[in-house]
């Protein structure tokens, strides 16, 4: 039935930042896993739940190149996420999805990739990043610009280290002024500013941009300055959702159902939406 979720077993839990955790989940039932394998593409989202508390929506943070499991990263805030944050390996949670559209990464082939993320919005970006890095040969230069409020708020610290070490990835890390620690080696400044300094070429480049609304707004300006067109900038929207399948009427912005026609949009598509409803 339409609202029946898949049971998932928690494989591991990793604390990323204060109040932010990553869960690695595996399917309990093989047929559910099969369904996921056939349908999952990077950029899609799901509803993660616990019976007795409810469901909460966030992206699948693992790439489409690794479908044995699902990873999700979330900030603890409401009733569901608070409970999810307390699970342990072996516990059963639920997953409903994958829903929504995807980053069209085969269209990105042969192009330079610029990933820009802020704070807790790295997870959706990370799904695309690994989907591309896992088939690195298909893409040209890869640049990742990631910023958070403070050093502690950076998520996926291990992977940041890994990307930093790779010579086929250019990683630009930054924290907001005041958020640095004494031993912080990287940039200090807001993402748009740091992005402009890093000055990636817009030439044959696709940008994937995720972050809080205010960051997106200013980063788009920066990207425009750098010469990016709105059609070449992809982003993902996260609205409040309950059904995930275009029924509950909550997530629409204008005539667009974020849950079905999104969550991935080009900046051009986002700009066409009624901005006040975002």
């Amino acid at each position: 039935m339409i609202y029946s979720p898949f049971p998932m077993r928690v494989v591991s839990k990793r604390a990323e930042a204060p109040g932010v955790n990553t869960l690695k989940l595996e399917f309990v039932k093989e047929e559910d896993h099969e369904f996921f394998k056939q349908n999952y593409k990077t950029g899609m989202f799901g509803l993660y739940g616990i019976f007795g508390e409810g469901e909460s929506t966030f992206c699948v943070a693992s790439p489409e190149t690794r479908k044995d499991y699902i990873e999700c990263t979330f900030r603890q805030s409401g009733r569901v996420t608070s409970t999810l944050a307390n699970v342990d390996a072996g516990d059963i949670v639920t997953f409903r999805g994958p829903y929504g559209n995807r980053f069209p990464i085969e269209q990105f082939e042969g192009k330079n990739l610029l990933f820009i993320a802020g704070g807790i919005a790295l997870p959706p970006t990370r799904s695309v990043i690994w989907s591309c890095l896992d088939q690195r040969e298909k893409y040209k230069d890869v640049t990742i610009v990631y910023g958070a409020r403070t050093v502690a708020d950076l998520v996926y610290k291990d992977e940041l280290d890994e990307w930093k070490k790779r010579d086929d990835v250019r990683l630009v890390l930054t924290v907001d002024p005041g958020g640095e620690t004494p031993d912080w080696q990287d940039h200090v400044g807001f993402v748009p500013t740091v992005l402009e300094q890093a000055a990636p070429s817009p030439e044959n480049t696709i940008a994937v941009l995720c972050g809080p609304p205010i960051m997106i707004k200013f980063t788009l300006v920066a990207l425009q300055k750098l010469g990016f067109t709105a059609e070449n900038v992809y982003t993902t929207l996260e609205n409040r959702m309950k059904c995930g399948v275009g029924k509950c009427g909550r997530c629409n912005v204008g005539s667009v159902y974020i849950c079905k026609e999104g969550p991935v949009f080009t900046a051009a598509e986002v700009q066409a939406m009624p901005q006040a409803d975002l």
């Binding site: 508390e53 409810g54 059904c243 509950c248």
Partner: peptide, 10 residues
């Protein structure tokens, strides 16, 4: 009108 919410109750 068809909007709805999903809630766990128990």
């Amino acid at each position: 009108c068809h909007c709805f919410d999903i809630q766990d109750e128990g």
